[in-house]
Simulated scan of single mutants.
Amino acid sequence: MSTRLSGKTALVTGATSNIGRAIALEFAAQGAHVVISGRDQRRGDEVVAQIVAAGGRADFVAADLDGSADASHRLAAEATRVLGGRIDILVNNAGIYPGDATAATDEATFDRVYAINVKAPYFLTAAIAPAMARRGGGAVINLGSWIARLGIPVGSLYSSTKGAIETLTRAWAAEYGPSGVRVNAISPGVIRSDGWAADHPANAMMRGTPAGSGGTPDAIAHAAVYLASDESAFVQGTVVDVDGGRVGVAVIGA
C-alpha cells in the first residue's frame, strides 16, 4: 500500500460504481480512510469489502443526495462522525446523465438533474469546506465533464450542470483557498464502464483525438489522488482535463 494519502480522511459521493468507485479504491490504496457514499447498500458494502481485503480502511454511508440541503448536511455529519471528527478530502462525484435533446426534456427532469448535479454538491461543500477552513487545510475535488466546453447535440441539460460545477470550482477556490482549502475539478472525457465492447457507440466521440477511444475510471482516480495529495499544493481553482485530448487536440485524418 502506498502512502500518498496516509493519515487522510475522504468522503467520495457516488462511490459505488464506475468513476467514484475507482477513486475510492485508489484513495484507500494510497492510505486514506474512505467513506463510500451512495444509495445502494449492497454495492457500497462490496466496495468496502474490496478495500478492507486489500488492507485499507473504508466505511459505507448511505445517502440519497436529492439536492436538499438537509440530505447533504446529514451525509456531512455522518461521514464526519465515521471518519473520527474530520473530513480532509471531499470528492463531489455523484451525478446523473439524461441524454435527451432539449425539446424532449420536461421540467421535472430539469429540476431533478440540477438538484442532484448542482444543488447536492453545493450544499455538501457548504457543510464541509468551512470546517476544513477552520482547521487550515483540506481538498475539494469536483467532477466536471468534457461536454461542458465542447458542445454535442444531445445532453445539453447535463453539460450545463457541469459548466456550473466548473464555475463553482473557481468560486470556491477564491472563497476557501486563502484558508488553506484547495478546490479543483477533473473533467473526464469518454470513460468506459463495465461491459463496454470495443465497438461501443460512445467510442465514436473519441475519434480525432490522440487517445482514439474511451478511457478507464482508473485514469480519473489517478488524477484525483494527485489533486488530493500534497503534491498539488500549488494547484488552485483548476480544471484538469483527463479526456484523451478531446477538448484540446485534433488529430487530422483520424
Rank of each mutant, 00 (worst) to 15 (best):
3 T>E: 13
4 R>P: 03
6 S>C: 05
8 K>F: 11
9 T>C: 07
13 T>Q: 13
14 G>C: 09
15 A>N: 09
17 S>F: 09
21 R>M: 11
21 R>F: 02
23 I>K: 09
27 F>I: 09
31 G>K: 13
31 G>P: 03
32 A>N: 13
34 V>S: 09
35 V>T: 04
39 R>H: 00
39 R>P: 00
41 Q>N: 07
42 R>D: 15
43 R>W: 04
53 A>D: 14
54 A>F: 04
54 A>E: 12
56 G>Q: 11
57 R>Y: 12
57 R>H: 12
62 A>V: 10
63 A>W: 01
65 L>D: 00
73 H>G: 02
75 L>D: 04
76 A>P: 00
77 A>G: 13
80 T>G: 10
84 G>E: 05
86 R>N: 08
87 I>Q: 07
88 D>T: 03
88 D>G: 09
92 N>G: 10
92 N>H: 09
92 N>E: 12
93 N>W: 08
95 G>H: 02
96 I>A: 07
101 A>V: 03
108 A>Q: 12
110 F>S: 01
110 F>R: 06
111 D>G: 04
119 K>W: 04
120 A>E: 11
121 P>F: 10
123 F>P: 05
131 A>R: 15
141 I>W: 03
147 I>Y: 04
148 A>D: 06
149 R>Q: 10
150 L>W: 09
154 V>K: 13
159 S>I: 07
160 S>H: 14
166 E>T: 07
168 L>P: 00
172 W>A: 02
181 V>I: 02
186 I>Y: 04
188 P>C: 02
194 D>K: 14
197 A>Y: 00
201 P>N: 14
202 A>C: 00
202 A>Q: 15
207 R>I: 14
208 G>A: 10
208 G>Y: 11
217 P>H: 12
221 A>N: 11
223 A>N: 05
227 L>Y: 08
228 A>S: 09
229 S>E: 05
232 S>I: 10
234 F>C: 07
240 V>L: 15
245 G>M: 13
246 R>D: 01
248 G>M: 02
251 V>N: 06
